[in-house]
Design a protein around this nucleic acid. Structure first.
Lengths: 152, 152
DNA sequence: GTATGTAAGTTCGTTTTCTGAACTCAATCT
DNA sequence: AGATTGAGTTCAGAAAACGAACTTACATAC
């Protein structure tokens, strides 16, 4: 199977990969979260080739993660903005960044996130939507367990 | 810049990508979380080519996300197990799966996670490690804000 | 003792994708 | 008129992925 065909796999993670799993895509989204909107901003920040930036942005637009908006008529100019679906990736990226911060500390600056509501420096923890307690992997079960594809 | 050189970027997300950002890698880890350990299990479940599985597993071992363990001496046979660093990716993958479930519901089965501690079906929410409140993107600030690379 | 099977890979010719530099286009600015 | 800007496209060469076949080291069946 080709990587370009993972959208056919009915698994949430595979579906997520089919939209945001290509190389450079998450770095483009990181820049978008920091306020980037212009083609050249994405290109200069990520250092990916212009062809790749072009292809990835089109893919994100196609899947409603970003939108292409004309911001100037003469000459016609377009920028890219996160949609609600795109902004909803913020927890994913924060969780991933936190993993890198805790497990590869020598390679990144120490984090400096602050929660404005309580005023403290914090790191993200995963909580249960129902009881609010912290989720640990051992406390999660599946009613119909996700099976390995080969074993079905 | 080449994708294979993102490990040089001192950004947590880029560092995470350099370890788990290649195509197929997250699907391999998904299978590992479900209990897969054998080369052929990974290959048959993901449908990636054997060469790619081989390369990705070696990369994960090199970065201490999985370990290669001999489980039989005659003939010599090896399997792959998640390390602590690999198991720590569970929240990342759960958060990403939840994003796909909520934003691409037509393409995946409805979720069925249960929190054994409280007994309820749940979805993961991101909470503040200090005050326990739910984190929304607007309530996060950075003391030294992550800048766009081009603007530095 | 020969043949078949198994698990964990490697090899290799073909196809696909990426890379980076140059080019285009529409319009404004000097 | 010529230079600049922003948003791309084009293209030749390099790198990576694809998938089928092959290898290695044994165990087991015939």
């Amino acid at each position: 199977m080709k990587w370009s065909q993972i959208d056919a796999i009915p698994c949430p993670l595979a579906q997520a990969m089919s939209v945001i799993g290509d190389s450079w895509t998450l770095l483009i989204l990181r820049d978008a979260m920091r306020g980037a909107t212009k083609f050249d901003e994405f290109q200069q920040s990520t250092h990916a080739s212009r062809a790749v930036i072009s292809e990835r942005l089109a893919h994100l637009v196609q899947h409603d993660v970003m939108e292409r908006v004309q911001y100037e008529a003469h000459p016609p100019r377009y920028e890219y903005r996160l949609t609600a679906r795109g902004r909803a990736l913020q927890p994913v990226m924060m969780t991933m960044a936190h993993w890198a911060e805790t497990h590869m500390p020598k390679r990144v600056r120490p984090p400096n996130r602050r929660h404005t509501t309580c005023g403290h420096k914090f790191h993200p923890v995963i909580a249960c939507s129902e009881c609010g307690e912290t989720i640990t992997p051992e406390t999660v079960t599946y009613d119909r367990p996700p099976a390995l594809a080969a074993s079905r």
